[in-house]
Design a protein around this nucleic acid. Structure first.
Lengths: 216, 216
DNA sequence: AAGTTTTAGTTGACAGCGTCAACAATATTT
DNA sequence: AAATATTGTTGACGCTGTCAACTAAAACTT
């Protein structure tokens, strides 16, 4: 295979992904071209084709690595004793990552993926990211004796809300909605607070109902 | 201006928008080309340029009209006596529209807009859509004596959650997450239920707290 | 070790794209 | 009626992704 006793001989396959990612991070995905990547690496415009059958295959690999980094970032959160605290930490990590890596985030979630069937690896790594959320939610429900479907339903809600606010905050339209800067700055925290309420309202309702006859 | 006593003389400017919208609806936005539009309308490849300075200007007009239709669809909801019912109806309309017009929805919210400064009309009509939500939320808070910032904060949360679930349900990744079909089908309704809980938990908490000493 | 095949690079070509420029015909204005 | 503005045309340029043919070096076979 690779005789690794001399200096690394310049791995073009890997360099393509790095260069493509750099182009996207700087100018956005629509400016990515294979020829541009090739030029940046001082190789001919067809060299990348020896490693990736098409532009989409390279793009899929870039996105796949983003999901990997995202999963790592989520899993690097503080360890927590209670499931509720863990969810809050996870939420903060999620939004931190989304807001400080907007182009990567858009690449993962707001880019029309190349044909999914042709890129199964991409799907596998995307699923890993979702499973972090699902896994964090699980102990919360083990205590409460709920089903996997209940977990998944709530996980989709949590994901939807966080993804929604992340997307909205990044979209240019936010700057033109007459919403005060203060509200914008606090919106991420507010969404997390609302998620918290929605997830834990069952107890609150139970407490309330045990205390008095059902209102309205 | 236009002497309208003979048969309508084929309005190319309008026809371009319609044709472009049709192309996008059929093949997605990345397949849209001005030359393609021109061919479909049996004019030369440069004819559309007499009406739109660039591809992005035509695209902006297509998106703008989508926002108009979206706003109309939201405002066409049933009239409701209570603000809570109105929010629920609005939510249903929002998700109905998003899920039955996926390409238009993606065009509005998941497409990197052409340079915002160059297309102020687009921004104006996008703001109109958001104001529907804001307006529906307003009476809910007049009663409760809250500020505009409170309204906006909750509006952003509601929007984020609905936008999130709409986006997720449309993304191809959903089909590969090992989430049961039943959960997927009910997810939109579940998200709306969770929004409802989060928005109304203040009363519930107030009721509970008045009934017993604060827990935990 | 020699010969063969596979790999990783090259150059060249093609069609499609957005867009600039120059030209023509038809409407509108003066 | 003359001048001008509008709305179309054709042609060209450089960019793109991708196919094809060629080359040199590396790896594998015997």
């Amino acid at each position: 295979m690779l005789t690794n006793n001399k200096a690394a001989p310049f791995d073009l396959k890997d360099a393509c992904v790095v260069a493509a990612h750099a182009v996207i991070a700087e100018h956005g995905i629509e400016k990515l071209s294979l020829r541009d990547v090739a030029r940046k690496l001082n190789v001919s415009h067809q060299a990348p084709y020896k490693h990736y059958p098409s532009r989409d295959h390279l793009l899929a690999e870039v996105i796949r690595r983003c999901f990997n980094r995202f999963t790592v970032a989520l899993n690097a959160r503080e360890t927590n004793t209670t499931a509720n605290d863990d969810m809050r930490c996870l939420g903060r990590r999620y939004l931190d990552y989304a807001l400080s890596n907007p182009l990567e985030y858009r690449l993962m979630f707001n880019t029309p993926w190349p044909d999914v069937e042709a890129h199964p690896d991409l799907v596998v790594d995307a699923r890993h990211s979702f499973n972090v959320l699902r896994l964090a939610l699980t102990p919360l429900y083990v205590e409460k004796n709920l089903t996997q479907d209940d977990i998944d339903a709530d996980a989709l809600f949590v994901w939807a809300s966080m993804h929604g606010i992340a997307t909205i905050l990044q979209s240019q339209v936010m700057d033109h909605l007459d919403v005060s800067q203060k509200v914008i700055e606090r919106s991420a925290a507010h969404v997390m607070q609302m998620i918290d309420r929605a997830l834990n309202v069952r107890e609150i309702v139970a407490v309330a109902e045990s205390a008095m006859p059902p209102p309205d």
